[in-house]
Design a protein around this nucleic acid. Structure first.
Lengths: 240, 240
DNA sequence: TATCTGAAGTGGTATAGACATCTATATATA
DNA sequence: TATATATAGATGTCTATACCACTTCAGATA
């Protein structure tokens, strides 16, 4: 139900409610949503408020609106899931695989020029330098090198780095990721990469550099990932 | 100015007006926009209408809103441009390069099983089969194979296929692209690819399959592009 | 039977006003 | 001088209402 005294806005509550119904399967792909006016009556709220909730979900790809007909649950589940995924952990879960990590390296070091520039911090400022093998169902999938400003993210430990760092940021430090820039290229595996990923040297590799930012534009991390090309394809949805 | 009798909604007119001011440089990164209430008075329209225009631009990445302070032009121009680009022509222009094409093949053929499935049409239905070398500043950049349902897009000619097919769809047929699914992988160049792209066989290639859809989910085209890895990197922005 | 017509229901656009919450600045107070 | 405090102005949320354009479908009409 809707709580008008909650600090969470009404439209956000309704949004969450509908999203939960979709994700739990109560509303399936193609199903018709109750009409806007029905939501109004049912919850005793105004139509503009209902529209704000529904429009947000439509823009996020959960719903599809049709003038004169109604609002429907979007057919393409995969796209919804793949929209806005940035972490390896989330990505693998969405693909139905079990993510894990093997920590190769964990250290606080002074930032070199290039890292400092990418993270918008002074040269020699302390940064975490983390190197992990990322695995799916126990198989090596990618070799990942992460740099995070130590002043921005206190208390990071090797134990946390073995799991999802994103999760730690959002749940324990309440640091909300806003967006990431990704650059993807195709290269051949170096000696190091082929060794850790257990593939022949010279095999194709999908190389991904991801820089992640907060709402105000502050960089939180820069990650370089080398994915095994025989195991991993990168999937995106582009909306016009 | 705003025309209240235009078939184009007021919020869309205002949206376009502001976008033009940003793209023409009248409003630069970091600049403060007039307040919502000022827009209301200036154009004699209501605040909700102004908000619809501004919110759309904020979601598209043009503007950044700050409660209690104001609305500002977003700092990161590149991202705006790279958001929502799907065509090679647009992509190259955004990178400041001159796109061109060399037509290798143009034919209407009956759809084979896999193509028919991707395009959601009956097997053996006619489809355009187009093969092009895509060039930037005259240099070969990618080898591209396109399939388009012939019944959906009448009147496609080799001449048009030498330029931007997207442009033809949108401007001449008023077919509005809604979104694309992209799958990107890293492979090594086949004989054909290395020949046309003028690179050694076995070189790394960025392989991209892009399926494009209309608002109602109808597939318009499926494209397989093989990019030279030494010349091309794929850039995306992911918003949470 | 086949076709037109109109009503009901849907989402799309727009108005005018209200109160809440946050930010920055100016002013009064210790 | 330094610290509270008030206030003006910004965006955020929400209401109640109105009319429009489009879709669907039942019922009237030819």
């Amino acid at each position: 139900m809707i709580n008008k005294n909650s600090p969470l806005p009404i439209y956000a509550q309704l949004e969450e409610q509908i999203r939960e119904q979709i994700e739990s399967g109560i509303l399936g792909p193609g199903d018709t949503l109750p009409s806007e006016r029905e939501f109004c009556e049912r919850h005793g709220i105004s139509r503009m408020t209902v529209r704000q909730a529904i429009n947000n979900l439509a823009k996020a790809g959960y719903l599809r609106r049709e003038k004169g007909r109604g609002t429907f649950v979007s057919e393409r589940k995969m796209e919804q899931q793949l929209q806005g995924l940035t972490s390896f952990t989330e990505d693998m879960k969405a693909r139905g695989r079990k993510p894990s990590s093997k920590l190769l390296h964990f250290e606080i070091v002074p930032a070199v020029e290039s890292i400092a520039q990418t993270l918008s911090i002074p040269k020699h400022d302390p940064v975490y330098h983390i190197k992990r093998i990322r695995m799916a169902d126990g198989e090596p999938m990618a070799l990942e090198t992460t740099h995070i400003p130590a002043n921005l993210v206190p208390g990071l430990t090797p134990e946390i780095a073995t799991g999802s760092i994103y999760n730690y940021l959002e749940e324990h430090l309440s640091i909300a990721i806003d967006y990431s820039n990704q650059v993807i290229e195709s290269v051949t595996a170096s000696e190091t990469e082929s060794h850790y990923l257990d593939i022949p040297s010279g095999s194709p590799i999908l190389l991904m550099q991801r820089d992640t930012f907060l709402k105000d534009g502050t960089p939180v991390e820069t990650v370089k990932s080398a994915y095994r090309a025989d195991r991993y394809k990168f999937v995106t949805v582009i909306r016009r």
